[in-house]
Simulated assay, not measured.
Amino acid sequence: MNKIHFILIIYLLLLIGCKSDKKKSEENIESPIPEKVIKTIEKDMFLNSFKIDTTLIKKDAFGDLKISNSIKKDSILSLCHCKKYKKNNRIKIQLKTAIPTQKELDTMSESFKKRNRLLQFGDLSSLKTINGQFKFITIVLKDSIIESINLYSKSTEKEYNGIDFDSLSIDKYKINVSKFNYSIASNVYGNFELHLEKSFGFFENDTILKGDFLCNNWRITEKEQIKNWNIKKSFENRNNDRGFRVNQ
């Protein structure tokens, strides 16, 4: 092999190596970061906050609960109830909503998924029965402190590990409120963002909830009442109960 041939071979090897490195580099750039890694980073960066916001605007007791998994977003109707404890400046804020059962969600079209079961409880027409998962987001405030945030779920089916009730404590939150004085419930309103440890249940990995609240002096449904609630019986008696109430 003469000197020229040797130089050509070295040049070709270097050229192939450069192209290979370039291709690998391009592949690395184009490869997306795994969704699991993104969610872990977002979770670690999320900082809790609870503060007064003087720019808040009063919304209605009925509102949209926004649901997300960072990629997909949707919203469903919710209704806010509150109960104040004037003696110790404490208030419970509860947003009620409802979605189809998991079996229904797996089989029905998108247009039917958002037909909110919450409104069906107020339907005094010819409906004979009801199915669904009823959700209660319950936020307890005392002075400038978050005492607790819980999501209670009750279904007409035994779909929470073989039972029809589930309770989830929430410790990732951002809540803005009009004031820390809760003596007049109607003056308490705000918004929130909650990050759940597991799915809300409307679509896959829907762990982010956002919404607004406007307080009042309506009835709050306690955890044990929800747990023991006979949904179908309440629906049958809805003419007497006048809508969405939890009766034992």
Rank of each mutant, 00 (worst) to 15 (best):
Phe180Gly: 02
Gln225His: 03
Leu214Cys: 08
Phe200Cys: 01
Ile208Phe: 04
Ser199Leu: 09
His195Asn: 11
Ser178Trp: 05
Lys223Asn: 12
Arg245Phe: 11
Leu194Ser: 03
Phe235Leu: 04
Gly243Arg: 07
Arg219Met: 13
Arg245Leu: 10
Ile220Gln: 01
Arg245Trp: 14
Asn237Arg: 13
Phe180Ser: 09
Asn228Glu: 09
Tyr182Met: 10
Asp212Glu: 12
Gly211Glu: 03
Ser183Asp: 08
Lys210Trp: 06
Phe244Ala: 01
Asn205Lys: 06
Arg238Ala: 01
Lys198Asp: 05
Gly190Pro: 08
Arg219Asn: 14
Asp241Met: 14
Arg238Val: 00
Ile231Val: 04
Asn237Val: 13
Lys223Asp: 11
Asn228Arg: 13
Asn216Thr: 07
Asp212Ser: 11
Tyr189Gly: 02
Glu236Cys: 06
Trp218Ser: 08
Lys210Asp: 02
Arg219His: 06
Gln225Ile: 14
Leu209Val: 07
Arg238Ser: 00
Asn217Cys: 06
Asp212Tyr: 13
Gln225Asn: 07
Thr207Lys: 04
Arg245Gly: 07
Leu209Pro: 00
Glu197Cys: 06
Glu236Asn: 12
Ile220Leu: 10
Gly190Lys: 04
Asn240Ser: 12
Thr207Asn: 02
Thr221Val: 15
Trp229Cys: 00
Lys232His: 12
Ile226Tyr: 03
Gly201Met: 10
Leu214Arg: 05
Asn187Trp: 12
Lys210Cys: 10
Gly243Ile: 00
Thr207Ile: 07
Thr221Asn: 10
Asn230Pro: 14
Leu194Trp: 15
Glu236Leu: 12
Asn239Pro: 07
Lys210Gln: 06
Ser186Gln: 14
Asn216Leu: 12
Gly190Leu: 02
Arg245Ala: 06
Lys227Leu: 00
Glu204Leu: 04
Asn239Val: 08
Phe203Cys: 02
Ile208Trp: 09
Gly243Phe: 01
Asn205His: 03
Lys210Met: 12
Phe202Ser: 00
Gly201Lys: 02
Ser186His: 15
Glu222Trp: 14
Leu196His: 05
Phe200Ala: 01
